[in-house]
Amino acid sequence: MHKRRLVLLAVLAVVSVAAFLTLGLRGNLAFVLQIRAVKLLALVQVAVSVALSTVLFQTVTANRILTPSIMGLDALYLFGQALLVFLLGGLGYAAIGGGWKFAAEVLIMIALAAVLLRPLLTARLDMSLLLLTGVTIGLLFRSLSQLLFRLLDPNAFAVVQAASFANFNALRADLTIIGSVVTFAAAALCWHLRHRLDVVALGREAAIGLGIDWSRTAALLLLVVALLVAVSTALVGPVAFFGLLVAALAERILGTRRHAVLLPAAALVAIILLVGGQAIFQHLLGSASTLGVVIEFAGGIAFLLLLYLGSRT
C-alpha cells in the first residue's frame, strides 16, 4: 500500500515539474527553459529542505505540531543576515561572495539556536509553553532585525529585504550550488539514518533503552535542521506553515510515521505543492507572487486543525 501511494506521489511530482517547465512557453525556447530550469532547481531545494527539516524536527521533539519556523529558527537566520549587514555595511555585505555570506549567516544562526533553543528542547517543557517561547523568540528576533535595519541607512536596507511572507518568485540565484550541496547531503544523511529516526521518534528514554546515543544524535539532527532551514530561508524567505502542512499531509496520505516512507513522501508532497503551485500561479494565472500567500493560508489552517484535534485527544 505504501509503495503504491509513494509511486503515485512521485508521478504527480514529475507531472508538476513537467508543467512548470512547459506551461505557457513563449519566445526564445532555449533561453526560457534555461531560466525555468534554474528556478526549478531552487524550488525543489526549498521543497525538500522544508519537508526534511520539519519531519526531522518533529521526530526529535516527539511533537507533530512544532516546526522549525514555529520555534523561530528562520527568524534566527534572518537576524544573522541583518547582523552581518549591520556589521559590514551594505556595500561590504554586497562585496563578499554568496557562499561566505551563507556560511557566516548559518554560523550566527547555529550559535543563537544552541544558546536559546537547545536548552528549551531538552528541558521537556510542555507543549503550550514551548509554542509560546518559540513564537516569542521569533517575534523578538524579527523585531531585532527590523531595529538593525532602522539603524542602517536606507541604501543598506535595500540590500537585504526580510519579507514577512515567503516569496517564491524572487530567488537568490547565488546560492543555488551551495543550497544543492547542503540539501542533497542532508537528504542522503536522512536516508542513511531512516531506521534510527524511527527509534528517535519514540522519545529520549525509549531511544536510549534501544541503544541510541541520545545527546549526540539529537545534536546532529538539530544541526541538520538548522542547515536546511538556512537554505530555504536564504532562498525564499521565511515559510511559517508550509512544513507543517507538508508533514501533516504526507502522514495523512501514507498513514505511517515510518521514516523510510514518511521522508520521501513529505519531500514529494512539498515538490508537488511548490512546483505544481508555482506552475499554475505563474504560468497559467500570471500572478506569481500569490503562491506564498495561498500556501501559508492552507498551512495556517492545517496548524489550527492539528491544534484543535490534538487538544481533544
Partner: peptide
Amino acid sequence: RQDGVFAGRLTVRELVSLGRFPHSQGR
C-alpha cells in the same frame, strides 16, 4: 518504563520490531 506510552502513528508490529533495533539496526 512505568510511563512507556509513545506518541506517533505506529502499529503494534512496528513497535515490537523496534525491539530488535539493537541487533539489526533496522535491517
